[in-house]
């Protein structure tokens, strides 16, 4: 009987751990969605195919670069905090980067150095995948490519940021969500 009790306890602990991991992911992201600040990041997309997670668009960003002091050394893959601000046109850009957590603002990303150019630092944005319904990913890519050629249209990702965490909420072409564009095109 004693053995059975220990077994039961172990079983419950394992089950809780297995539930905790996905639940923690959800809670973290929901917190950012509810109280994080909204930013628009200018994008340029491509579409690969991940068998395991359905289909998504890979986004790359044009403003993931910041000027840094030439003498300061940053390693590839190093953890950094990137302070995000909004420019006059309403789009997000990196104001500065640091190794220490910024104290005066909540609007920063906890991320990694992509690579170090001459007095320029390229930063990884941890929201480069936008998952679409399987049947829409291909059409979405086509619409994107057309709009990338068209310099009058603007594509951007709507991202919420809070204390290092970021959640990609939606992707827009000229203020219309990409999903709606795909549906309208059918």
């Amino acid at each position: 009987m004693h053995r059975k009790k220990i077994g039961l306890l172990a079983f419950i602990l394992v089950a809780l751990a297995q539930l905790y991991v996905p639940a923690k992911m959800i809670i973290d992201k929901e917190l950012v969605l509810h109280s994080g600040k909204e930013f628009k990041f200018r994008t340029a997309p491509v579409d690969p195919n991940d068998q395991f997670r359905g289909k998504y668009i890979t986004l790359s960003y044009s403003d993931n670069v910041v000027e840094v002091d030439e003498n300061e050394k940053w390693n590839r893959g190093e953890n950094i905090y990137a302070l995000i601000e909004t420019d006059n046109e309403g789009f997000a850009f990196i104001e500065s980067v640091s190794r220490e957590k910024p104290e005066n603002s909540e609007d920063y990303l906890f991320t990694k150095v992509q690579y170090n150019g001459q007095n320029k630092l390229f930063v990884e944005f941890p929201f480069d995948r936008f998952y679409m319904e399987e049947s829409k990913a291909y059409d979405a890519e086509m619409i994107y490519r057309e709009n990338e050629r068209d310099i009058t249209s603007t594509t951007y990702a709507l991202v919420r940021i809070k204390e290092g965490e970021a959640v990609l909420e939606n992707v827009f072409i000229d203020d219309i969500p990409i999903k709606d564009l795909v549906e309208a095109g059918r």
Partner: peptide, 24 residues
Amino acid sequence: ISLISQIYNIPGNLGSFLLTWSLL
């Protein structure tokens, strides 16, 4: 785990995903 990643557009780090999965 991977479905939650999909719902919240979390880009995958395959290494840490496999590690968490195996450990659990």
